[in-house]
């Protein structure tokens, strides 16, 4: 069952990501990005990261992606677009680089097998036990508010800076 679901959502994510890249209409790209993100949220649940999956839906799909759509519509890019996929030389370059990257990453994944074997005793069971003991949210929240408190607080500053920067950049000049 898990394998089935993994294959389903993994395939869905890959396919819709492919469409994001190839779709001519930016709105279509955005909507297929939604599918990719949702499929990844499902994969996160399968991988015992329920809290992150919920965040994925709320933050990524609910906030970031909506922002994308909002900007597309604001700029009237939803129609009368020009095809913007680059010509053949760029496709060859992209293909070559992508192929090389995939090969290298695939090779890089090899050590992960031995990692799993080495960590066999503290495999998914340890994480599941932790989540059962503290709750799915508590497992993430406890280190976040203890060991990672300072970075966590810093993110609030980052967000504040992001808000100010976005306002400053996007507002019309009043002069």
């Amino acid at each position: 069952m898990e394998t089935f679901l993994f294959t389903l959502f993994g395939g869905l994510a890959l396919a819709s990501a492919f469409v994001v890249v190839t779709a001519r209409n930016p709105v279509a790209s955005a909507l297929f990005l939604l599918v990719t993100l949702a499929a990844l949220a499902a994969l996160f649940v399968l991988l015992d990261a329920q809290f992150i999956a919920v965040l994925q839906v709320i933050v990524y799909i609910g906030a970031i992606l909506v922002l994308f759509l909002f900007v597309i519509m604001l700029l009237n890019l939803g129609y009368a677009y020009r095809p913007d996929v680059r010509p053949l030389p760029w496709r060859l370059v992209a293909g070559g680089v992508g192929l090389a990257l995939v090969i290298q990453l695939a090779i890089a994944v090899q050590p992960a097998r031995s990692l799993r074997e080495a960590a066999g005793t503290t495999g998914p069971e340890a994480l599941v036990a932790l989540q059962q003991a503290k709750g799915v949210v508590g497992a993430v929240a406890e280190p976040l508010f203890s060991d990672y408190l300072v970075p966590f607080e810093l993110t609030s500053i980052l967000l504040l800076v992001g808000i100010v920067g976005a306002l400053l950049l996007a507002k019309r000049r009043l002069d």
């Binding site: 680089v97 990257l101 290298q104 090779i107 890089a108």
Partner: peptide
């Protein structure tokens, strides 16, 4: 971006 990626590939190859 292509230049950066080529650099990444080289570094990755070196790391591997």
């Amino acid at each position: 971006v292509v230049a950066v990626l080529v650099g990444v590939l080289i570094l990755l190859a070196a790391a591997l």
